[in-house]
Nucleic acid binder design. Sequence first.
DNA 1: GAACTTCCGCCGAAGATCGAACAAACCTCT
DNA 2: AGAGGTTTGTTCGATCTTCGGCGGAAGTTC
Lengths: 385, 385
Amino acid sequence: MTPQPGSAGDVLTLISAGSATTRSDLARLTGLARSTISQRVDALIERGLIEETESGESTGGRPPRQLRLQTEDHAFAGVDLGATHCRIALMDISGSVLAECEDSLLIGEGPETVLAHVDQRIDHLLAQVGRPRKALRALGMGVPGPVEFATGRPNNPPIMPGWNDYPVPEYFEGVEVLVDNDVNVMALGEHRGAFPEAAHLLFVKVGTGIGCGIMAEGRLHRGAQGSAGDIGHIRVSGHDNAGCRCGNSACLEAVAGGAAIARRLTELGLPAESGGDVVELVQAGNTQALRLVREAGRLIGEVLASLVNFFNPEVIVIGGALSRVHEHLLAGIRETVYRRSLPLATNHLTITPSRTGINAATLGAGILAIEHYLSPENINRIVNA
Amino acid sequence: MTPQPGSAGDVLTLISAGSATTRSDLARLTGLARSTISQRVDALIERGLIEETESGESTGGRPPRQLRLQTEDHAFAGVDLGATHCRIALMDISGSVLAECEDSLLIGEGPETVLAHVDQRIDHLLAQVGRPRKALRALGMGVPGPVEFATGRPNNPPIMPGWNDYPVPEYFEGVEVLVDNDVNVMALGEHRGAFPEAAHLLFVKVGTGIGCGIMAEGRLHRGAQGSAGDIGHIRVSGHDNAGCRCGNSACLEAVAGGAAIARRLTELGLPAESGGDVVELVQAGNTQALRLVREAGRLIGEVLASLVNFFNPEVIVIGGALSRVHEHLLAGIRETVYRRSLPLATNHLTITPSRTGINAATLGAGILAIEHYLSPENINRIVNA
DNA sequence: GAACTTCCGCCGAAGATCGAACAAACCTCT
DNA sequence: AGAGGTTTGTTCGATCTTCGGCGGAAGTTC
């Protein structure tokens, strides 16, 4: 519902997006009178949401006072939970990372154990940067399985025993908690961090399994049941004898995932257990491993070619453990996508390795939290309180 | 940008969506004072956008005066251009069809000829229902090829010679014109007409070729180059010898489109030229034709299974010429989708023939025009003028 | 340093919204 | 039938918001 743009929340949105840095900018962009803008800005400053910095460049007259987010008083946490790790980044409201940490942590230990660990680590990070617990405004979390985003409850996650339907947000008191699938937060992190201008983006994570986060019109597409992006179980042709843990055969994940490549290397007499081992073999120059990675790229490319025709993204980002040998993976992917997709869809298509790399998930999770906090509705609520 | 909801445009949106039919409803939904609502309503009535009807049901007190869209003063046109036909529906602002017509018309005649025909037919329809030309507020059009939606110019359409980059909207003076791909308007028509509650919907058109319109969060997803939904050239496994007009082989369209089925029937000694002939053979009970249609359904289902995993829609609608034998097509599609997609995504998935049928495109095109006209920004502009 | 430009706060005027009061229209119960 | 209750819609002054002009502040240009 949108009359004229002009609430305090809208003003803050313009500032946080970098569209406006001065009162004049705001007046021009919103169409409101300068005096009205000043009043909005005063309110935001009073609430500690923005601050004035030293005067900026003059354009021939009095130099404008610059406005920016006030980065001292708040904190946000981005949590990346994997099957065997936990990464946390503490951020200020502008998205800058203040502190981070990484541990080994088995998600199979169950929610109580894992969340207690997360909680304690966040306290530790807060202490490290000297901000009180109550500075923590919101917390974003990516988990390796499907989640009902609205409630923050994992939805029959295959590799998260004990987590099914667990009300994660309720574990943390006094903080808003947003839980999402790990690939979704990675897509968000990569979009905001590297391709903010891209209207439609796919983030493909190639690790043990294969998944995909979907950004449509700058927002995450989660699908009807929150299971969108589950491309690991799309069928690829010519591999009907490759059984998958999902019960079907010829799933992409079962032929091109890190685990699948490792298994095939083992069969060839090159012991490998995980995607990490595959990466090591490739980096050591092993031609068998290299060939298999490139072949995996072709298979992933086959699936992506379909999705490019269907979804017409602007950017496809390749991330996950196997992207550490992305030159070989990307070669196969590009080769197939550009051969099998329609020219109109590939003309302006960029296929690229992740720029945010290992940090995609923590950044994305933190951004999920920050954007939730900075939503115009929430800001208006705060300012009018 | 959204402070508190409350502009005249927002009020009208609530009325046209059916969320509110009385002033009290509006006050409750917007949070504005009753007196303010009355003022908004007065303005909308004065502009001829809404009208009062006789009093409604009392709930124990004074019965409320019902409000509804004023359907007398405006007209909107929905135009469905196919390769060989032109269908037009004239609608009032509520989306009710006032009059319609259908002709044979070769799109290959070029834009001037075709648009002159459309223009003349619209005049005729307007005369038929006794509304002046100036009542025509907006015009939506679906064409059989890719379109740059923002400008209304066809983008290298393969079966529309002479139309490339032609500025369609400029042909019509004094009317807002919105041009989109035919499958997109069909998806819109089916969504609004039959599944307004579905958050994510795919409309699959199976005719001579195969295409797909995508509704995401109730809005059309057009993709970065406006080519989203082009699923006709997705590869299907096991048909590498089937060449396609696009230059690749094993395209879905080349093995499961109406033209492809007709060709295979001809090879089997059953002369068939088009999808229409295939439909006739099936309806006549020919088992070969029936078998091929069902097999085509399986192939389409294979592609849709991938897209279900990726996109996680709530509803898949099957339309187009071949959907006239939808029981056989759907059997093949359902069989494959439910076998190959993940349970989480198929649990609440509905796969159904089109309910709006032959009218999907004209309805959708008209709705495109109406929704453009009823957008809060446009209404605010009208009311404040 | 004079003239010009841009920025920003102040303040009265103009406008929008609210809410109380009242009238209208119906229901229910006696 | 009439009294009393309920919901709806309008009117009107009070209040709050926004606007826009003015003047001072703080630069640049000539």
